[in-house]
Amino acid sequence: MMKNRSAAAPFAVWMLLFTIVPLGVVVWFAFTDAAGHFTLDNIAAIQGHLGTLAYSIALGALATVICLFLAYPLAYSISRKTERVQQTMVMIIMLPMWMNFLLRTYAWMTLLENNGLINRFLGLFGIGPLGMINTNGAVVLGMVYNFLPFMVLPLYSVMTKIDSRIIEAAQDLGSNGWQIFRRVVLPLSMPGIVSGITMVFVPAVSTFVITKLLGGSKTQMIGDTIETMFIGQAANYNVGAALSLVLMVLILLCMAFMGMVDKDEEGGLVV
């Protein structure tokens, strides 16, 4: 018993320093005014940002769904290869993640700009220039591109655990390709779907760099709003904290819902 307790000590310290204390600070800011008195004004002020909040969730959800549809077949085909091929393919998926996040997003800027590479190429055929930068599409593209590996990896990791003999057994019992997918592969990959959605949706909803670089001034997501609350002349730490808190609660609700969809999930994020 004592041994267990002492082994948990580093975790307790970590929790206290990096989870409980910062969360406490956020909550304190959210429920106080500039003078430090208790108030609900900050929470009430969120009403003015509900549109942005809904918009962020919509864009984040769209990017998550696109990631899921792209990553699922990709992860499945990787998982059915031999081990060496799998390692190489996963490596290639991971490779862009080791490059700086800003750099990757800037790269998309130079591609999508009105006089960027894509438009210049299209110009050769007399097409365009197409207005691609500073659109919602560009933002979603940036999210999908940046967060796709977070969807592929958890999916891949549950799919490699599906024994090929189980798939053969389904075939043997009369299932065609679609039935194998629906009755065996999909249910068995559910934990990966849930953790993939979590790992893409959460950063996608709260991103502000991608919107700033690819969305221009037209697109504002909740991440951008929160940023302006902490930086610049209009800074208001209290409303910013309240917004962050609400965002966190919304994300937790989304996750709880996902958890209910997959009640057999063995738990924990699979990385």
Binding site: D163, R165, I166, E168, A169, Q171, L173, S175, V184, D264
Partner: peptide
């Protein structure tokens, strides 16, 4: 293809469906 053949297989190490209970495993086909 395998799924159309009038034969069934008992696999090495059984290859039961881990996400289904006994009833659903037997009912699968």
């Amino acid at each position: 293809p395998a799924y159309r053949r009038p034969v069934n297989t008992i696999f090495q190490r059984y290859a039961l469906f881990p996400h289904l209970n006994v009833y659903e495993n037997v009912a699968f086909g």
